[in-house]
Design a protein around this nucleic acid. Structure first.
Lengths: 295, 295
DNA sequence: TCGGACCTATTGGAAAAACCAATGAACCAC
DNA sequence: GTGGTTCATTGGTTTTTCCAATAGGTCCGA
């Protein structure tokens, strides 16, 4: 059975005539005639009684019409559904992030722009996020780290200075700015080796010929924060990630360009998937707006 | 949305791959690829994640698949239904007849051959039957009368001698055969003017130059039968229509070829409608079988 | 009862779609 | 690696769909 034939039949039955059906389907009337006739001939049934210029469903036709109506209605439903997803009025975007800091702004903007899209956020380190991108369990990920993998597409999003933060009793506690050289020999609490912030900081001091004393490496931002609050050492953090604390104080490093860059990542081959493109477009807009605002 | 695309999508989702889908649908694999791709491009959605040689439904794809399954299943139902009607395993045939006499044999044979077809029988006179054929309220009609209407197709079915029947006290009651001339001046109980039996009989006696005395014309076979039983006159009837009665006796007319012919009729343009053709074919078979049996 | 309006059927040819064979590229199991 | 399997791409062919023109019929009102 041909679907065009079924659609023609349905229109004729619904509109009560071949000509009326042809108008509804935007085709010529002979087309309708031949489609319905082909359907009748193929199954060797009569679907309509042609009484002069009136057509009346036969019993067979009535049975078919009931089924056809359900099919047509389901097709409309399918089309609606696809339009809804394609038009970004429904859908589900899985977002990965190494921490909520960079991602929240984007998630909030995305939610405002596409209220119908469900958002799920997975938090994990950069390596985990890269894996999840590759196995489709997240659609986009906001990372500081840049994956060196041709399968992953990366867009720089925002640049954040790395600041030093110290306990209130530390000698830097009264300072607003320091120079890098002043950190020589400082006890420091650092993140684990893979941390992008740590990498940026260590690159900077190595270039400046400064050496520090890494007293502790901890695998969590909050743990570092607490350790510094207790005076175990001083810490470094991306300014956007810094959480105020009564015992803590931040200090700007003036003579070095230490920063981390947040990137939006996705599977390269999915760069143009509807939802993913929408997320990147929105990130692009946020970036531009911030630049304009800062002028 | 194109139906071919939907079918391809459904097969891929159901079979778990493009190649598997192409085998099920008996088309080449490139066809499937292009159909699904076209569907995705048209609505700007992703339906499958292509993970190497494995394909996995996206959320959008899952939603569409559920709808597509229902559509495909309804299409199978529609096709089944049409095959059932086309294969004469279901359907409804409206049969008209002037009396049950000629029709019952055919109805019985038809029911045996096509047990799934519902039969409705409408009884009425020839003129009513002709009208009902023309307005589609009966599909076929078994009549003695031949309609002189080009829109009605007619097939002769069986020829039945017209016999005379008399009351036990009549002078013919002891006879097996009479000649037509012997009926000169007889009191006769006849049917109404339109009766085919009456017409055949009157034509025969006119040709033979015999005149009779029509004492009564009654519009019902049963009424004539009763009138003759009471001795009001003698009657004529098609032998197949004759119903025995203790007070009645049938007499054959040997020197005249008086008979009626049962015809099967239908709307000429519907001669090849499946059910109608089946009825005619069956009538043809019955006729042939009777001729063979009579040799 | 006659003609205009309206409807379905038919036909031949044009436009569009579905389709395939061949081939490429990526992946997986051995 | 290597062969077997899978999806993607390309071009050209076959099939389907479609239309314009037209015929033949019914219906309705003058």
């Amino acid at each position: 059975m041909n679907h065009t034939q079924l659609r023609s039949f349905h229109a004729v039955a619904a509109e009560g005539g071949f000509t009326a059906a042809s108008r509804v389907l935007n085709v010529g009337q002979p087309t309708i005639t031949s489609q319905v006739k082909a359907l009748e001939r193929h199954f060797d049934v009569e679907l309509f009684h042609r009484r002069g210029r009136r057509v009346i469903l036969t019993e067979t036709g009535r049975v078919l019409f009931r089924i056809a109506q359900r099919i047509i209605s389901l097709e409309a439903e399918a089309e609606d559904s696809l339009n809804t997803y394609g038009g970004l009025q429904a859908g589900h975007l899985h977002v990965g992030a190494v921490g909520p800091y960079h991602a929240t702004e984007m998630l909030s903007a995305f939610r405002d722009r596409y209220p119908g899209i469900k958002l799920s956020v997975t938090v994990g380190n950069s390596m985990e996020m890269a894996e999840r991108i590759l196995d489709y369990s997240v659609d986009v990920a906001v990372l500081a780290h840049v994956e060196d993998d041709p399968r992953i597409y990366t867009m720089p999003y925002s640049r954040h200075p790395v600041v030093v933060f110290v306990n209130k009793s530390h000698r830097f506690a009264k300072r607003r700015r320091i120079r890098l050289a002043e950190m020589e020999g400082e006890h420091m609490v650092l993140r684990e080796l893979g941390s992008t912030t740590r990498l940026a900081f260590e690159t900077a001091i190595r270039e400046a010929g400064v050496t520090i004393d890494p007293v502790m490496a901890i695998g969590s931002r909050e743990a570092v924060w607490l350790a510094v609050a207790r005076g175990i050492g001083i810490g470094v953090v991306s300014d956007i990630e810094y959480i105020p604390h009564p015992d803590l104080h931040t200090v700007e490093v003036v003579d070095a360009d230490i920063y981390t860059t947040a990137h939006v990542n996705c599977l390269a081959e999915r760069r143009d998937a509807r939802l993913i493109r929408a997320f990147f477009d929105m990130a692009e807009d946020l970036k531009t707006r911030r630049n304009v605002a800062s002028i």
